[in-house]
Design a protein around this nucleic acid. Sequence first.
DNA 1: CGCCATATTGAAATATCTCAAGGGCAGTGG
DNA 2: CCACTGCCCTTGAGATATTTCAATATGGCG
Lengths: 243, 243
Amino acid sequence: MKIETSPLTRKLSAFVKLSASELGVLERLHERRKSFSAGRDLVHQGQSEQAAYILAAGWVVSYKIQPDGSRQIVDFQIPGDFLGLRSVLLHTSDHGIEPIVEIEAAEVMVSDLLQAFAETPRLATAILWAVSRDEAMVVEHLVGLGRRDADARMAHFLLELGVRLSLVGMGSREGYACPLTQYHLADALGLSAIHVNRVLRKLREDGLVTFRDGVVVFDHYDGLVAVADFDPAYLDHARPLLS
Amino acid sequence: MKIETSPLTRKLSAFVKLSASELGVLERLHERRKSFSAGRDLVHQGQSEQAAYILAAGWVVSYKIQPDGSRQIVDFQIPGDFLGLRSVLLHTSDHGIEPIVEIEAAEVMVSDLLQAFAETPRLATAILWAVSRDEAMVVEHLVGLGRRDADARMAHFLLELGVRLSLVGMGSREGYACPLTQYHLADALGLSAIHVNRVLRKLREDGLVTFRDGVVVFDHYDGLVAVADFDPAYLDHARPLLS
DNA sequence: CGCCATATTGAAATATCTCAAGGGCAGTGG
DNA sequence: CCACTGCCCTTGAGATATTTCAATATGGCG
């Protein structure tokens, strides 16, 4: 019974029913477990790596540093997400990847991954689904920066994260634990940290959501959805893929 | 001699030296030529398509409509770019694709593409390079929206477009023809059309760049690069890929 | 001619930033 | 135990960038 299910397995299982053998292959990818401490870059901007990782525990941030020194966060990764998969497949990493807290991740060599794909096409399908979802999130993020005001951006961000975390059992409509600082939010949402603070206060005072002491609590989920104009369609889009 | 070289071939040749047979396969992909008129969506938001296209002539815009009706442009495609490649590979299109002018495009069935890949791995490499470059552009776009002010955003955008067009012989350091309206720029850069107008005026009065009557003229290229903090590294990154 | 899309400009309103300052709390070294 | 430092959060007030509203100009086109 007691087979500890990895977050990635959990996430993929929500969308594709995987057979026992497929699950076996998937778990085997998690063998080379490693730890990394917070704050030290996993991948430096401009460097290209040999291996990808599957995040098992902890939070990671992907960012890009501007010539003027400011930082734009492209995305956060949570357990079950791939790290640097694209960098490996495309031999190019133009952004940095840094653990926010101490993390656990499984190292996956390209060859292992390709072999797993060959063995179990349905698994390949599922993983490509995850990749396409990541891309959809980046696009949605771009839309948010271009077309939403600060309140909506923040609301949308917190809601999206909630949905993502729920998929791996780390969140619900009630809320979730979240180790991000207001500076992280600022760099992700294209705001100043000061304004992030004000926005959070406003959302809290409006009885919509409370982010405090590392915990996000949805005080009024539907109200927040309205503020954000949140439509989670892009997160659970139809079963994808050639397969 | 006179083999009319497609823009895609031109673009890829700038990065990977392709053999005669590879060039042949590439040109064969261009066989099913079609025209589409301006303004009618090629792909509707939410719809998923069977075929991808290689743009041969004209300009195309990829955008996403918000629930509130506003539009965010994700990217523009110019000759030599793929349309809907990701949508096809991942069976998911969450954004619309619309020709800006009358366009010519070659329809490519997934099967043709996969077969071409099997025949010529180096070609697959080259095309994946192009895909990864597209992604880098989206990320750079995201960074611009989050961390650049209106002037820098505009300058960066015009410069990036210049580099892209140069690769297919449609532009140079002097300038290029550009059918975009100020509304297109506004929706791409996350600004109001009115502000776009003012920004263009300022850049023109500062003697940096002139965008008028469908033509972009770089009056002072290096000055514009300075305003934009433009570093084209992400556009011509190292030869990529597993191959 | 009248109409529509695009471009232009001004003035007032608003969102967000910057600068400045202070508070809480955890770790660290005396 | 205390003082100190660093990191994160909070708040206020003035400065700035950008938007909105309103009005006008221009050219193509039925």
